[in-house]
Amino acid sequence: MTAFVRNQWYVAAYAREVGREPLGRTLLDEPILLYRTEDGRPVALSDRCVHRRYPLSQAPSRLVGDRIQCGYHGFTYGTDGACTYVPGQQRIPRTARLTAYPVVEQDSFVWVWIGDGEPGDLLPPRAPWLDSPEYTVVSGMEPIDCDYGLLVDNLLDLSHETYLHGGYIGTPEVAETPITTTVDEEAGVVYVSRHMDDAECPPFYANSTGIQGRITRWQDIEYHAPCLYLLHSRVAPVGSPPPNADGTDPQAFHVEVVYAITPSTGKHTYDFWAVARDFALDDQEVTEFLHKNNHTVVMQDVDALNVLQKALDTEKPGYQELSINIDTGGLAARRLLARMAQ
């Protein structure tokens, strides 16, 4: 199993999922209750009542103003986790307190700090496209019954697009084009870059951009271990000029693919996925197409990882793998995670 990395920010939910209905999520084996106060602030508390451990996210537990009332015997807690009411007696036991988790709402995500200490000045890494008027976003979340390390492996090696996602985002050139891999150990970031000069345009991009014919296709991955994965995808007709020195790039189409990889338990992972584009911003047909197409692609990965985890579960301890050049980025990520978990 891939070790959990504590003392980090993790995406617990999309901001839109957290409201006045209690929501339960399990992060790194910790059951967490999420809700929003009447004035809109997200709250994250332990999702187990201190009395008999009833889940506070489960009916008939409910919000009473900004407080959460346990649905079993009525213990009630404030947003700081302190118990404010117990049934039948005046004295509230001193130990009646839920763990309250630091929360940040940023870039359309609700991030929760999982750790022993406080985050201090450390903020979650950014994915600004998800909450920007210059982009249109489609997104979703799929649970996977696998070790989160399998999803990290999957996303760090996009050569699998050619095989697992052929006819959607994969073309022969993806698996054939060499990559450059860079590790910034101090920052905890792995970069993998694959620049295809002359590639077939897969349906995902042909139908959304309207490009007919071959493309230059750049895939620049930034994996901010452990939780945030960014894929900067640049697509332009072959022969278009490269980006300008000032960073502007009017001839190309840009898609920012964002994943939040949140370990739930050792065998369960939340796969938050989002696709932000800087073209056809108001075109509802393109939005629907990208949502459907990307959801299909995500489900191809989900199905494959569910199968893979089941197969790995039957392996004897110490089973062998074989790594080749395409695995350079994935191996770097594994090492980084192992070091961060120490």
């Binding site: 496209w129 930034e222 840009h254 050049n325």
Partner: peptide, 25 residues
């Protein structure tokens, strides 16, 4: 937003897949 910008001042390890070969540098 620029694609894949790497801060050149930090300590980086880099691996190049050598063009036209199966070797990694």
């Amino acid at each position: 937003m620029k694609a894949g910008t790497v801060d050149p001042d930090t300590a980086l390890h880099r691996v190049h897949w050598m063009p036209g070969t199966d070797r990694l540098l």
